[in-house]
Write a protein that binds this DNA or RNA. Structure first.
Lengths: 196, 196
DNA sequence: CTCTGAAACTATAACCACTATAGATTCAGA
DNA sequence: TCTGAATCTATAGTGGTTATAGTTTCAGAG
């Protein structure tokens, strides 16, 4: 067997990519709500049934991958951090280099990111993909900090970290927002005890 | 004008309540996905068009109110807290007495709460209602703590607090989970600096 | 009390996302 | 080469949701 997949899987990947590109092109041109899945299927030259066979999560999932890349990337960021660096610091730096927080991206990806951030349905689905990593991230943090993985504090921390892209992504200065949020998570809410 | 509304608004409220009750009854009996909006409209003896006129947010919104009650309740919890009590402490106590965190409720409301917690679509919509209060809560916190309302730290705090019902609601001991999360928000993530 | 206009309701038809089914084609491995 | 599974297709259907146009019901003005 050759290292490249067989013709079958190659065609499958081609079809999936054609759908992804068609969707991104049409969304950019007419807006998310201005495009029907029928148009996308047409543009990619497949039937509607085929479209849904490739993208079981529906219309919003068309321009995303299946999310496994995110999960791997996250757990790696936690486990492979340099010595002496805290888990939160590692997550902060990794996130800052990614997603909505840097403009150091090919223009094509920037356009895609802007489309996602400015389209509620896509932003929400992006959040879903992040949240789907909650368990994996919680496990990674539990391992690294020697705590119990069922500790609610860990689950909450994982959730709150994964919520950051949606929370900070729409801010005028996303990177500053990201840093402010990580500061909150590291040190807590700095309130003077109460009113007089 | 009498203190009670006119017949018109009374009938409107009646219809809305009939829809709400019909939906709750049918959801409880056949599950959320086992009921169509047509059945609900039928049970409430109105047309489908009328159903959507009363509940513009769609099927999931049928058993919820419009969310304004939540908003009022939240801002009151912050502004009317006893002297010497911190904002987070006030929110912690208020939330603990409500929603998924106490069983001190009429059995009818308990059933409704269980239905919501166990039905993904309803749980998600409940979260939406909470998040819709983010801006109001952020403003309240900003006022009480003398900070700038556009401070990202405040927005994040508000968001994280409003995320608690969904985060802790499914835990075996929701109240303990709620307290653990509030501890995290108050004191931050207590991590030893890093690995060797 | 009556008129008038707005609001609520209705039936109907349509749109769109999504699913189910059954059959045709294509490829992989025995 | 043969067999079976995967892919794709057309088709028809379900269900949520919206638009339209017309009818009934009420509130307030005169």
């Amino acid at each position: 067997m050759p290292t490249t997949m067989g013709r079958r899987e190659r065609k499958k990947a081609q079809t999936r990519q054609a759908l992804s590109e068609a969707a991104l092109r049409l969304f950019s041109e007419h807006g998310y709500d201005g495009v029907t899945v029928a148009q996308i299927a047409d543009e990619a030259d497949v039937s509607i049934a085929t479209l849904f066979a490739h993208v079981p999560d529906g219309k919003e999932a068309l321009i995303f991958d299946d999310g496994s890349e995110r999960r791997i990337w996250l757990t790696a960021a936690v486990h492979d951090r340099p010595p002496g660096q805290s888990v939160l610091e590692a997550l902060r730096r990794s996130m800052a280099a990614r997603g909505p927080f840097t403009d150091d991206l090919p223009p094509e990806l920037r356009h895609k990111r802007d489309l996602i951030v400015n389209t509620p349905a896509l932003r929400e689905y992006s959040r879903k993909l992040w949240i789907a990593c909650e368990e994996a991230l919680a496990e990674a943090i539990a391992t690294e900090s020697g705590r119990d993985p069922s500790d609610m504090t860990i689950r909450a921390l994982a959730r709150y970290v994964l919520e950051i892209p949606e929370l900070a992504g729409t801010e005028p200065d996303p990177l500053a927002a990201l840093n402010a949020i990580f500061d909150l998570l590291e040190h807590g809410w700095p309130e003077s005890p109460g009113k007089t």
